[in-house]
Deep mutational scan, measured.
Amino acid sequence: DETGKELVLVLYDYQEKSPREVTIKKGDILTLLNSTNKDWWKIEVNDRQGFVPAAYLKKLD
């Protein structure tokens, strides 16, 4: 059920640097789980959840 889920576009590649982070690729469109922290957003990638720098993402309307 995708209702109410926010999507984000990945602006730059990011390689995870800790187990709490996930790797993302430029151009991916992913589900945003939590954006309350202005610097690190929690997203879902391939059934994995983790954090990436918010500056690497853009919210889609």
Rank of each mutant, 00 (worst) to 15 (best):
Y12P: 00
Y12F: 14
S18H: 12
G50Y: 08
K58W: 11
E44W: 07
E6M: 14
K59Y: 07
K58R: 12
K59F: 07
Y12C: 12
Q15M: 12
V8S: 02
E6Y: 13
T31G: 07
E44M: 09
K26V: 07
K59Q: 06
A55K: 14
D47E: 13
L57W: 01
K58P: 01
V10P: 00
S35K: 08
L60M: 08
D61C: 11
E6G: 13
V45W: 09
E44R: 10
L33Q: 03
L7V: 09
T31M: 13
A54P: 05
V8T: 03
E2T: 15
K26R: 10
K42E: 10
K38H: 13
S35F: 07
E2N: 14
E16L: 08
K26E: 07
I43M: 01
S35D: 14
V8M: 03
K42V: 13
N37E: 14
D28L: 12
Y14S: 01
T3D: 13
L32N: 01
T31N: 09
S18C: 08
V52L: 01
N34M: 08
K5V: 12
P53D: 01
P19A: 12
S35Y: 08
T31W: 12
V10S: 04
K38T: 12
I29S: 02
G4Q: 12
K5W: 11
T36W: 08
G27P: 01
D28P: 01
T3K: 11
L7T: 08
L30I: 10
L32I: 05
I43K: 00
N37T: 06
I29H: 05
T31H: 12
G50F: 07
L32A: 03
D39G: 09
L60Y: 08
Q15Y: 14
D39A: 10
E44N: 06
D1L: 13
D61H: 13
V22C: 09
K58D: 06
K38I: 10
N34D: 14
K25D: 03
K38L: 08
V52Q: 00
L9I: 12
E2L: 12
L57S: 00
R48S: 06
K42Q: 11
D28A: 11
N37Q: 11
D47Q: 13
E6N: 12
G27C: 07
Q49Y: 07
D39Y: 15
Q49P: 05
E44Y: 05
V52D: 01
P53E: 02
V10Q: 01
W41M: 02
E44H: 07
G4E: 15
N37K: 07
G50W: 05
W41Y: 04
I24R: 00
Q49D: 07
D1P: 15
L11Q: 04
L57E: 01
N34V: 08
L7S: 08
I43L: 08
R48N: 05
K58N: 07
K26D: 02
T36D: 15
I43H: 00
T3C: 11
D39R: 12
G50D: 02
K42T: 06
A55M: 15
D39L: 13
R48F: 06
T31R: 15
Q15F: 15
V8N: 00
Y14K: 01
Y12A: 14
Q15A: 14
D13S: 10
T36V: 10
I24F: 02
L57F: 02
S18A: 11
I29M: 06
I43N: 00
V52N: 01
N46Q: 15
Y14H: 04
G4T: 13
A54L: 02
D1Q: 15
K38A: 13
K58M: 13
K59D: 02
Y56H: 11
L7F: 10
Y14L: 01
D1V: 15
T36S: 14
D39F: 14
L33S: 03
E21H: 04
